[in-house]
Design a protein around this nucleic acid. Structure first.
Length: 482
RNA sequence: CGGGGCGUAGCGCAGUCCGGUAGCGCGCCUGCUUUGGGAGCAGGAGGUCCCGGGUUCGAAUCCCGGCGCCCCGACCA
């Protein structure tokens, strides 16, 4: 470890803490190129776990993976008016290749709707070809003005799903199906509770009919958009002539959806569960769920202890626990404890001569509490239980924290007071006027994170807009956001 | 793009005001002793002082001009 000093605490400076945690855990590093980051093995391992889980869920819905090119003809972007308006400012464009100026500049994809639907136009002829359900795992590039490790980098990794359907109802159904997947992933894998809902028109994806999202609340009480899914309507189908012949023999435009989550989720994980010692990785996403630290003095002890540790390692791996044995010599056990805590490993087993003699190990949990002895026999099963408990506890703790920092039935006055304090999710009535929404954003820096789904709405529907007192058309959730 | 900060060893920094042998802590290498919550001692390696010009016998330091990065805001996954 490069740095032995204590981290800046979350209370002192959340932003400094966040950066230090990432460096300490060796999740990522700054690259020579502004706004770009290197994802180091510890960070990439988390992303791989995320990919695996999400990919399985997509495939259960019948989605297939494919790969589309990095470079997109510039003209493709002007085919859908809102889309070009939304993305033009942040495009990176390749103008030269092989030492010659290109006839048509090529855009490095910021997202792939245009190229994918241009291909769908070739592949879809009949309603029998629908739905067409594809996803790709790739990198994209957006020339962001200000960047932050994982949360907003110029280049980032993500998955983008793109589907085509026979009618609006099927597209809508599928977009919402994906929203459920995202929510399930956030809660069951990341242990991160999220609100689900619809974005207002001003926050909608450029080119979409409707955008739905999952929103998490970080420990500094700022909201983070963690995933979006869009019903694109027929906007792209019309721009790229994606048509099919219906069972009635008529020629129709398809209805599209697109949806994505990115490496931003790694940042979300840090900000949801990290503490002043570093990150806490939920067991289901941890690269190593358990690390074994051997303890010995003499050479004789070393042999005995390592032999026992190796045996435990084998048994745990066989029992499905992702385990690492830290055999490094010359590092005191305490130094290893600090290192693995910083890296967020959920469980740590200490194995010393006394433990070997007693047929036990000492278990320490990343989430705290006293160390406790566990018999070596049946250890894998015991640790699985420990991890289930920890996974559930992390989700519950995050949920409690979010609810403690949520306020309902706000008025303009109570809303302002709430923002003056710690902030968080503020539920209240909204008139539906984009001008009112913009004023609120300008004056408070808070935005409507979503128009929450039924499940998250307040028992009593608000009757008036919390800001302007005109009749409310819906309930909205405001927060300051990343 | 506005505001702030910073560029000196792998990392964190002092030295810059007031020009004169390039330093400290951590890390790294070797050896010995250590190892149940961040080990100790000894020896050692490691530098275009961000870049370019200028002033000077002499520049990390003074002058001029660039570049880069980080943080805070406006825009966004």
């Amino acid at each position: 470890m490069a740095d032995q000093k204590a981290l800046t605490t979350r209370a002192q400076d959340f932003s400094a803490w966040y950066n230090e945690v990432i460096m300490r855990a060796e999740l990522a590093d700054y690259s020579p190129v502004r706004g770009c980051m290197v994802i180091r093995p510890n960070g990439y391992a988390i992303w791989e776990q995320m990919q695996r889980a999400l990919d399985d869920m997509f495939k259960e819905l019948g989605v297939q993976n494919a790969y589309f090119p990095l470079l997109i003809p510039q003209s493709f972007f002007s085919k859908e008016a809102q889309h070009i308006d939304g993305f033009a400012p942040e495009l990176a464009i390749v103008t030269h290749g092989g030492g010659k100026e290109l006839e048509e500049p090529l855009v490095i994809r910021p997202t792939s709707e245009t190229i994918i639907y241009s291909m769908y136009a070739k592949w879809i002829q009949s309603y029998r070809d629908l739905p067409m359900l594809m996803n790709q795992w790739c990198n994209v590039l957006r020339w962001e003005m200000r960047t932050r490790l994982f949360l907003r980098t110029a280049e980032f990794l993500w998955q983008e799903g793109h589907t085509a359907h026979v009618d609006e109802a099927d597209a809508e159904r599928f977009a919402l199906e994906i929203l459920k997947v995202y929510r399930r992933f956030a809660e069951e894998w990341m242990a991160m509770p999220v609100l689900t809902g619809r974005k207002t028109d001003s926050e909608r994806f450029a080119g979409a009919l409707r955008t739905y999202c999952i929103e998490g609340l970080m420990q500094d009480n700022k909201a983070l958009q963690a995933g979006t899914t869009h019903n694109l309507g027929q906007n792209f189908a019309k721009a790229f002539q994606v048509t099919f012949q219906s069972d009635q023999g008529t020629l129709e435009y398809v209805w599209n959806t697109s949806w994505g989550v990115s490496t931003r989720l790694v940042g979300a994980l840090v900000m949801t569960h990290g503490d002043d010692a570093g990150i806490i990785t939920p067991p289901r996403l941890a690269q190593y769920q358990c690390v074994i630290v051997p303890i010995y003095k003499s050479d004789a002890e070393r042999v005995t202890v390592l032999e026992a540790a190796e045996r435990i390692l084998r048994e745990l791996r066989q029992g499905g626990v992702r385990t690492h044995l830290d055999k490094r010599d010359g590092l005191k056990p305490g130094a290893k404890y600090y290192e693995w805590e910083g890296r967020g490993v959920p469980l740590r087993l200490e194995v010393g001569p006394r433990d070997v003699a007693a047929g036990q190990v000492m278990l320490a949990r990343r989430t705290g509490g006293a160390k406790s002895p566990l018999p070596t026999a049946g250890l894998a099963r015991a640790l699985q239980t420990e991890m289930d408990v920890m996974q559930a506890a992390l989700l519950e703790a995050a949920r409690v924290r979010r609810e403690q920092h949520s306020i309902r039935g706000i008025t303009k006055a109570s809303f302002l007071e709430f923002l003056e304090g710690d902030g968080g999710f503020a539920y209240g009535g909204w008139c539906g006027d984009a001008a009112c929404e913009a004023t609120i954003k300008e004056e408070t820096k808070a935005t409507i994170r979503c128009l929450p789904d039924e499940e998250f709405r307040s028992p009593e529907a608000p009757r008036s807009c919390m800001w302007c007192d005109r009749p409310a058309v819906t309930e909205a959730v405001w927060a300051r956001a990343y």
